[in-house]
C-alpha cells in the first residue's frame, strides 16, 4: 500500500517471490516524489515488467483477517492477501503528539497543509513561526512569501536567507491568541519565551502515517516501510524499503 518510492521498491523486491498488487490512493504513482521523478518512472517500469499489479487512485481503508478493503471511483472491493506491506508515507507530528497545548485558534497548520496552501498563493500570515527543520520545513521556507518574516523554532539552523530568526533546541509548548494565533511560547531547558506570530507551521518530528484500520499498530501480517527522518534521499528510501521487506518472502512462503 502506497506507490511512492518506498512502496514501489518494496513491491519490486517482493515481486520475484510472490504475487504483488501495489495500491495507491492518488491516481498516479510517485507520492511525494511525483509521477515524473526519474527514480519513480524507473521503478514503475520495472514493477510493470516484474508483473506487479498497479492499482492507482484507490484508497485502502481496512485490513481485517487478511482482507484489504479498497474504495475508489469504480473500485469497491475486498482483496485477499497473505501480507500487507504498508508504505503510507510520513507526516509531521500533530499538536497532541508534540505535545503543544494552549489556545485553539486559526493559523496553526501542519507543514503538509501549509505547504499546499502557500503553493496555492494563499497568504497564511505576515510572521510565520516554523517549528522543526527538514523536508516539510524546507518546502514551506521555499514557498514563504517574500514579505513574510520567518522564525524557525527547533531543529537545525537552516541556511535559508528566508529565516529572520532561529531558536535551535527550543520546542513549541503553547499557542496563544483569541481568534488567530498571536504568540507561540517556546521552551528550552525550562526557559520559556513567547514569539509574536500570526501563523504557526508544525514541521517537526516526522511520524509514520497510519490510517488503515487493523494496520495501525504492528501485527504479524503487516510490515511498515516508512522511513522517518528529517531529510530523505531517493536512495535512502529505496534501500530502507528493500532491507525492510527482504526477509518477508521467506516468512510467508507457506
Amino acid at each position: 500500500m502506497g506507490a511512492g518510492l518506498a512502496g514501489l521498491a518494496a513491491a519490486l523486491e517482493l515481486a520475484a517471490h510472490a504475487e504483488v498488487e501495489l495500491v495507491e490512493r492518488l491516481p498516479a504513482a510517485g507520492g511525494s516524489w511525483q509521477f515524473d521523478h526519474p527514480a519513480v518512472r524507473d521503478l514503475v517500469g520495472r514493477c510493470d515488467r516484474a508483473g506487479v499489479r498497479l492499482t492507482m487512485g484507490v484508497t485502502a481503508l481496512r485490513w481485517i483477517e487478511r482482507r484489504l478493503l479498497l474504495i475508489g471511483p469504480g473500485t469497491r472491493a475486498w482483496r485477499e492477501a497473505d501480507h500487507l506491506v504498508f508504505a503510507g508515507g510520513t507526516r509531521p507530528a500533530t499538536p497532541a503528539e508534540l505535545p503543544l497545548f494552549g489556545a485553539r485558534v486559526a493559523g496553526v497548520f501542519a507543514g503538509t497543509v501549509a505547504h499546499h496552501l502557500m503553493e496555492a498563493h494563499i497568504a497564511l500570515g505576515r510572521h510565520l513561526a516554523v517549528c522543526g527543520s527538514g523536508y516539510w520545513a524546507d518546502l514551506v521556507l521555499a514557498e514563504a512569501p517574500s514579505h513574510a518574516r520567518v522564525t524557525v523554532v527547533g531543529g537545525d539552523v537552516p541556511a535559508s536567507p528566508r529565516v529572520a530568526a532561529a531558536w535551535p533546541g527550543y520546542a513549541p509548548v503553547e499557542v496563544r491568541g483569541r481568534d488567530r494565533v498571536e504568540q507561540l511560547v517556546i521552551e528550552r531547558d525550562g526557559h520559556a519565551r513567547a514569539i509574536d506570530c500570526d501563523c504557526v507551521v508544525l514541521a517537526a518530528d516526522q511520524r509514520p502515517i497510519r490510517n488503515v484500520d487493523g494496520a495501525i499498530t504492528a501485527t504479524p501480517d503487516v510490515t511498515y516501510v516508512q522511513l522517518c527522518a528529517d531529510t530523505l534521499t531517493p536512495d535512502a528510501v529505496v534501500d530502507h524499503a528493500i532491507a525492510t521487506v527482504a526477509g518477508l518472502h521467506g516468512r510467508n512462503s507457506t
Partner: peptide
C-alpha cells in the same frame, strides 16, 4: 475527486 488527493505527501498512501 482531485481534492481528495493530497499534494506531494511523501511516499503516498
Amino acid at each position: 475527486l482531485a481534492l481528495a488527493a493530497r499534494r506531494r505527501s511523501r511516499r503516498a498512501a
